[in-house]
Design a protein around this nucleic acid. Structure first.
Lengths: 148, 148
DNA sequence: GATAGTTGATAGCTATAACTATCAAGTTTA
DNA sequence: TAAACTTGATAGTTATAGCTATCAACTATC
C-alpha cells in the first residue's frame, strides 16, 4: 500500500473532484506553469497528494488573497533555485530562470547543468515549495543563518 | 536648485499628469501601501522623482505584467528588511512585517526598534526597492555573496 | 479675498482574469 | 467492444479589480 504523498495516484477527474474545480482549470494551472503533474507515456496526467495540497494553496492565493496567476508566477520565480541545487557559475549565466523573474524555474526547458539531468517534478526546488508560505520563511533562514 | 531625486517636489496633480493617471488612483496606491508620499503638516502630498519612477514601475507590473495589487504587496513583503536595517532578535519577534507576508514593511505602524525611530519614507528599505527588478537581484547577491 | 488646488469619501464604470461548457478524437478499463 | 474515461482546443460566462468622476469641505497661492 502506497503511503508516499509524492506518488502520483489521482486522475484529473478525481483531482478536480477533490478540489471542487473543473478539469480545464487544472489544465490551465499546468499551462501557466504553476504545477507539473506526472504524465504517463500516454500523456495522461496523474496527481499526488502533495499536488493536491499545492493546488489548494494556489487557490487560496487566488481566491482569498486576490493574487493573480501572473503574480504567483513572479513570486515563484524568486525562489533561489540556483542556491538550492548548487548551480555552477556557468549554469547560472546560461539559465533563463536565473536571469528572468516572470515564471518559476520548473516552467523552463532546461537542457544544460543539473536541471538537464532530472525531471523538474522530482526536483527539490519544486518539492520544497509546495506550500506558499515556505518562500518567505526560506528567505528568513537564509539571512539569519548567514555568517557575516 | 534642487537636484536630489528623493526630494518631494511634485503636487498630486502634477504627479498624476506626469504619469497619465487620475488623482484617485494615486491615493489608492497609497492606501494600498504601495507608496509613501511625503506629507506636509497640512496633509498635502508631495512626490519626488523617485516616487514617480516607483509608480511607473508599479503600473508596468499591473498593466503589462498583469500582476494584481495584492500580488505586488506580497512580493514587497518578501523584502528582507530585518536584514537590511539589522533588527535585533527581539525586534523581529515583535514585528508583524517579519512574521507576515501580506504587505510591505512600510505599511505597518512601527513603534519599537529601529523602525520606531524614523519615517519609512526615508528608510533604506523603502528607498532601495523603488525599482521592481531589484528584489530578485537582491536575493541573488545575498545567496552568492554568502560564505558557506 | 478670490481662484485654483487640495483633502477624504462614495458611487459608478469597464476591461478582463479566472473559470466553465463543450467539442471531436484518442485511450483506458471492465 | 462498449462505456467511461482521457486528450487538446475553442468559445462563452461572470465576478471583480483597477480606475475614474464627482462630491462638499478645507488649504494654498496670487
Amino acid at each position: 500500500m502506497i503511503k508516499n504523498p509524492d506518488t502520483p495516484v489521482y486522475t484529473i477527474s478525481t483531482a478536480a473532484k477533490l478540489l471542487g474545480i473543473s478539469i480545464p482549470t487544472l489544465r490551465m494551472y499546468e499551462k501557466e506553469g504553476l504545477i507539473v503533474p506526472f504524465k504517463k507515456e500516454s500523456k495522461q496526467r496523474l496527481y499526488s497528494l502533495t499536488d493536491i495540497d499545492r493546488i489548494k494553496c494556489i487557490r487560496e492565493s487566488i481566491n482569498r488573497d486576490k493574487i493573480s496567476i501572473a503574480g504567483i508566477k513572479r513570486i515563484l520565480s524568486l525562489i533561489p533555485c540556483w542556491d538550492l541545487i548548487k548551480c555552477t557559475a556557468e549554469d547560472r549565466t546560461n539559465c533563463m530562470a536565473f536571469r528572468e523573474h516572470t515564471k518559476p524555474c520548473w516552467d523552463y526547458n532546461h537542457t544544460t547543468g543539473i536541471c538537464g539531468t532530472k525531471q523538474c517534478r522530482d526536483c527539490e526546488v519544486y518539492l520544497q515549495f509546495a506550500e506558499c508560505s515556505k518562500i518567505k520563511s526560506h528567505f528568513i533562514s537564509i539571512t539569519l543563518n548567514r555568517n557575516s
